[in-house]
Design a protein around this nucleic acid. Structure first.
Lengths: 110, 110
DNA sequence: CCGTATCCACTGTGATACTG
DNA sequence: CAGTATCACAGTGGATACGG
C-alpha cells in the first residue's frame, strides 16, 4: 500500500525533487538539514527501487550522481500538493502545535 | 509539516474511519490485523491530539468508546483517495513488488 | 470493554572512519 | 564527490499482566 512513503525523510526528499527536477547527492544533503548521509542514501535507494525516483551516474572524476523523479513520481506532485493544502487548513489550535513541533525538530538539526 | 501521518498505523486507521464514520476501539483492533493494543491506542491518541480524530466516551458499564473523524479529518478523505489512486497507477514492475511486500506483512500478522 | 504499566528484544539511527 | 563499513546506542514496538 502506501508503505512507499514510510520513513522520516521520504516526503522531504520528494519535495526537494519537485522544486528543481534534478538534484545532486550533495545538494540534497545540504538542502535537508538534519539528515545523515546514511539515511539519505538509504531512503533514496528505496525510492529508486519503488520506481519513484531515478538515478543517473555521470562517469567522471570527481563522481557526479543526479536524482530526479520518474514519470510516475512526477504524477505524485499534485497529490502531495493537496496534502500540503490540507495541512495548512488545520484549525488554529492544531497549527500552533504543529509549528511548535517543526521548530523543535529544526532546533535539533541545528 | 506532514509529521501528522507519521507512524506505521495512522493511514490504516484513517482508512477505517473513512468507511464507517464511527468505530469502537475493539472494532478497530479487529479490523486492523497485526496491530497491538499499545500501538493502536498510541496512534489514536496522537491523531486525537492533532485534531484529526475525535473520541467519545459513553459513561456506561461495560465501557464504550467511539472514534470518529473531525471535520478537518474528513477533509483529508479526498486527498488520501487521490494518494490511493496514485499508488494503483504504479508501473507493472513496481506493483508486483508492492503486492509482494503486502503479502509478506500480512503473513507476519497472521 | 478499554485501557495502563512493565519488561525486553530488536532495529533504526547517528557518528565516525574509510574507499574508488 | 558519492558512497560503504562498522559500532554503539535510544527508542520503538511486542508480549504480558493488571486496573477501572
Amino acid at each position: 500500500m502506501i508503505r512507499i512513503l514510510e520513513g522520516r525523510w521520504k516526503l522531504v526528499i520528494l519535495f526537494q525533487l519537485f522544486g528543481s527536477n534534478v538534484r545532486r547527492f550533495s545538494e540534497l544533503e545540504r538542502a535537508i538539514p538534519g539528515v545523515s548521509q546514511k539515511m539519505l542514501i538509504q531512503q533514496l535507494r528505496q525510492l529508486e527501487q519503488d520506481g519513484v525516483v531515478g538515478r543517473i551516474v555521470h562517469p567522471q572524476v570527481p563522481p557526479k550522481v543526479e536524482y530526479h523523479l520518474t514519470e510516475w513520481g512526477q504524477s505524485l506532485c499534485p497529490v502531495l500538493d493537496k496534502l500540503l493544502s490540507w495541512a495548512e487548513a488545520a484549525p488554529a489550535e492544531v497549527r500552533e502545535r504543529l509549528i511548535e513541533r517543526d521548530m523543535a525538530a529544526a532546533a535539533e538539526a541545528g
